[in-house]
Computed example of a mutant assay.
Amino acid sequence: MAPLNFILLAVRDPLKSGALYAKLLGHQPVDTAPTFVMFVLDNGLKLGLWLTDDMQPTPKPAGGYELSFSLPTRDSVLATYKEWTALGLKVAQQPTDMDFGFTFVLEDEDGHRLRPFVPAEQR
């Protein structure tokens, strides 16, 4: 099986979403155009933000995917919550303990969910 190395998110405005994700990821995009923005992360994973109206075949409405970010400590989850909510992201779940770890969920402007967490065994 081929490794998962590229994630595409359908977005309404790739340039606007690209500016937000640059802040969230701490990386600048490697490709920027009105219809597509791409990031390459340190681990090699590529994240593409593609204009919904430009995708073929036409995707379902923008939004609805969840990106998870594993963090090292509970304090780092809380710091990320403070930093990201200051960007105006919609809170879908306040910081809370769940069976898999300590987490919260925010949504970007397209409704994609962002879930930082620290695994339960690291709490």
Rank of each mutant, 00 (worst) to 15 (best):
L47N: 01
Q28L: 04
V77I: 10
G101A: 10
V91W: 07
L87G: 05
F36P: 05
L45A: 06
T35R: 14
T96E: 14
D108V: 09
L78F: 00
D54Y: 10
Q94M: 14
F102K: 00
H112C: 10
D31A: 12
L41R: 00
M38D: 08
K82P: 01
T103V: 07
F100A: 01
T52M: 02
D75T: 07
D99Y: 02
D54R: 07
F117R: 09
Y65F: 11
M55P: 05
F100E: 01
L49T: 03
D75M: 04
F102Q: 02
D110P: 08
L47F: 05
G64M: 10
F104W: 09
L49A: 06
V40Y: 03
L71D: 03
Y81P: 00
G88S: 02
P34Y: 06
T96I: 13
M55K: 06
L41K: 03
R123S: 13
F39A: 04
D53K: 14
K60N: 10
P59F: 10
Q94K: 15
M55C: 03
A92I: 13
G48E: 08
M38H: 12
T73A: 12
V91E: 15
D99T: 00
G44T: 05
V77Q: 10
D42G: 14
G64P: 04
V30Q: 05
P29Q: 02
G64D: 09
K90Y: 06
G44S: 07
E66R: 09
H27G: 00
E83N: 15
F100C: 04
N43F: 00
E121Q: 14
G26P: 05
F104E: 05
D42C: 10
M38I: 09
A92F: 11
D97T: 08
L106A: 14
S76M: 07
T58I: 04
T96F: 08
G101Y: 10
D97L: 11
T35Y: 11
D53H: 08
T32N: 00
P59L: 06
Q94N: 13
V118N: 03
P59Y: 05
M38N: 14
V91L: 13
E107D: 04
E121H: 14
F36R: 12
F100L: 06
L24T: 11
V118P: 08
H27W: 01
A92H: 15
V91K: 14
L114D: 12
P72T: 09
D31K: 12
